[in-house]
Amino acid sequence: MVNKSAHIITEDLNLWFGDNHVLKDVNIPVYDRNVTALIGPSGCGKSTLLRCFNRMNDLIPETRITGKVMLYEENIYSSRVDVTNVRTKVGMVFQKPNPFPKSIYKNVSYGLNVRGIARSRIEEIVEKSLHDAWLWEEVKDRLHESAFSLSGGQQQRLCIARALANDPEIILLDEPTSALDPQSTARIEELCLALKDQVTILIVTHNIAQAGRISDYTAFMYLGEMVEFGKTKQMFTVPKDKRTEAYLSGVFG
C-alpha cells in the first residue's frame, strides 16, 4: 500500500482517556502533498486521532498513549522530542474559528514572534501567509484592526494563515467548516485544494460529500478502529468493508 512517501505514519497507535479505550491499533499513512480525510460517525475517535498528530491530547489529563506516530523518521512521542517543535511543523485549524483577541496582523505574526523570528522578516511572512490563505485582498487595508471584525469565514481563513505562517509541513483541520455558512465552506474547500501543492493536509470532516470533493485519500473510522483506508474515489465507489458501505450510504451517521 505504501509506495509514495508518507509524511506521517502511525504504528499500532492506542489511546486511552482514563479507562476509556478511544483509539485501537490505528495504522494510517498520511501522504505527502495530498489531502487525506478522516471520516466516521461522531465519537469514533477521528478528532482524537487528529490531535495525536500534534500531541494536543497531551493537554487532557489521564491520557495514555502506546504505539508510534512517525513524522518522517522521528517518533513524535519519543522522549527526546520537543513538543513545541512538533507543533510548529504540524499546524492545526480548529472546529470553531478561534482568532486571538488581537489585531489581524498580530494573529498571523504570533507563531513567528514566539519563535523569535527577526522583525524584518515577519512582515514579509505575514503578507505571504495572508496571500496564501486568500485573505490578503480583504484585509490589507486593516491589518491592525481586531480579528473579531472579520466574518466567520474570514476568521477561519485567518486561522489558516496563522498556521501557514509557521511554514508547517502538515496542516491538521478539525471539521474546519462545521461552524460556517455554505459559501464560506466552499471557499475553504477550494483553498484546501489550492494549498495541497505546498503543504500536506489532513482533515476531519463530518460531511461525507466534503471528503469526496476535496480529499485524495480517505480513512473511515468506527468505534476507535480504522476500518478502511484508501483512495477516496475507490472507497466511495467500491468500499471494501460493509461498515464503510453502510456509513457512506447514510445508514448511520
Partner: peptide, 8 residues
C-alpha cells in the same frame, strides 16, 4: 533559541 525559550 529553544533553550532561551525553555529557560524563560
Amino acid at each position: 533559541m529553544t533553550r532561551t525559550r525553555k529557560l524563560q
